[in-house]
């Protein structure tokens, strides 16, 4: 029997990796990947608590969340694709035309 804490630790490690990616990466695709990691760490939490509390709605929410993550990724990649078409790169440091 695996204790709940293990799942939570796993989830926080995954989240921290995502966090690190968000902070350090400059490539748009990698950023989106990091975002997915953070989102899915939350999913892990949801499923874990759902199981340990014997409540199905947590798992239902996870399904919703995955669907929304898909939508988010779709939009994100569409934007990146559009930027790439315009400027031939997806380095977010150089995308600064809206900066003050």
């Amino acid at each position: 029997m695996i204790p709940l804490t293990y799942y939570l630790i796993l989830s926080s490690i995954v989240f921290s990796i995502g966090l690190y990616g968000i902070m350090s990466q400059r490539n748009g695709v990698r950023l989106l990947m990091s975002v997915e990691l953070m989102l899915n760490s939350a999913n892990i939490n949801l499923v874990a608590f759902s199981s340990y509390n014997d409540d199905m709605s947590g798992q239902v929410f996870t399904l919703f969340s995955i669907a929304l993550a898909a939508a988010e990724a779709v939009i994100g990649f569409a934007i990146l694709l559009s930027i790439f078409r315009m400027r031939d790169m997806i380095n977010i440091d150089d995308i600064n035309i809206l900066r003050w």
């Binding site: 966090l19 968000i22 902070m23 350090s24 400059r26 977010i92 440091d93 600064n96 003050w100």
Partner: peptide, 12 residues
């Protein structure tokens, strides 16, 4: 810096 990532770092 105006770089959102730096702000994110600071926030975290």
């Amino acid at each position: 810096t105006g770089v959102v990532q730096s702000y994110a770092t600071a926030v975290i």
